[in-house]
């Protein structure tokens, strides 16, 4: 059977634990849109105890274990979770920082653009945002020793590029685009919220009850 570069690229990315979305792996994403191709990838993964899954948004693909009875698989899942759990506070701080910068009520979503220049401008002019950025720069995985706002923002954004949450957009080098990995992060956060009994944001609950009443 002749080799298929897109199949190879897709399977390699999935096996490496990458999250496939239209912004980070556009070719693989387009390849997976076709049922026949999805089936081919799933059949391959099936033979090595893995399967193809979508996140709750239904437009982002991840590779999952098919059978978790093996201790190695369980340990791998725990390890992946620890990776998120250890950095979760920093990610929450980053999300809030971006919401404050963009003065919006909605957290960053796949496809959103982050303009480094605008972020620097806003943070430089608002001391509370500068404090939040400094606090963020002291936490892994955003830890950096830069003392200036521009350097800190660049370090944070670059860390997110490395982790697969952002990609560089366009040719300017200062515009970033959010990837589908955020939907996976929100899914994990939703699980933790339910599992650990963390209450939803303050104030809104009461308002919601009043509205429904």
């Amino acid at each position: 059977m002749p080799s298929n570069p897109l199949f190879e690229q897709t399977v390699t990315a999935l096996m490496a634990g990458e999250v496939i979305c239209e912004y980070r792996f556009p070719d693989c994403y387009t390849y997976l849109l076709k049922t026949e191709h999805r089936q081919r990838v799933a059949d391959f993964l099936d033979q090595i105890n893995r399967t193809l899954r979508t996140t709750s948004s239904r437009d982002t693909w991840v590779c999952a274990y098919q059978d978790l009875s093996a201790p190695e698989a369980k340990e791998a899942v725990r390890q992946q979770f620890r990776e998120v759990a250890n950095h979760l506070e920093a990610f929450v701080q980053f999300l809030r920082l971006v919401m404050n910068i963009e003065t919006t009520d909605r957290p960053i979503a796949p496809g959103d653009h982050l303009k480094e220049g605008r972020m620097i401008d806003r943070v430089s002019n608002v001391p509370t945002l500068a404090d939040k950025l400094r606090s963020l720069s002291e936490k892994k995985p955003f830890q950096n020793k830069r003392s200036d706002v521009a350097g800190r923002i660049r370090a944070v954004l670059d860390a997110l590029v490395v982790k697969g949450y952002l990609v560089r957009f366009g040719t300017s080098g200062s515009v970033y685009q959010a990837t589908g990995k955020w939907t996976w992060m929100y899914d994990v956060m939703t699980f933790i919220q339910t599992h650990e009994g963390i209450h939803a944001g303050t104030g809104d609950d009461e308002e919601e009850q009043l509205r429904l009443a």
Partner: peptide, 27 residues
């Protein structure tokens, strides 16, 4: 969905403020 995620982020933010050093676990 935006509203749900906004509350999700807000919930975690408050939880971290009230529980310094908190780390979720599935062990």
């Amino acid at each position: 969905e935006d509203q749900r995620l906004n509350r999700l982020v807000g919930g975690f933010e408050t939880h971290y403020q009230n529980n310094p050093g908190y780390t979720p676990s599935i062990d």
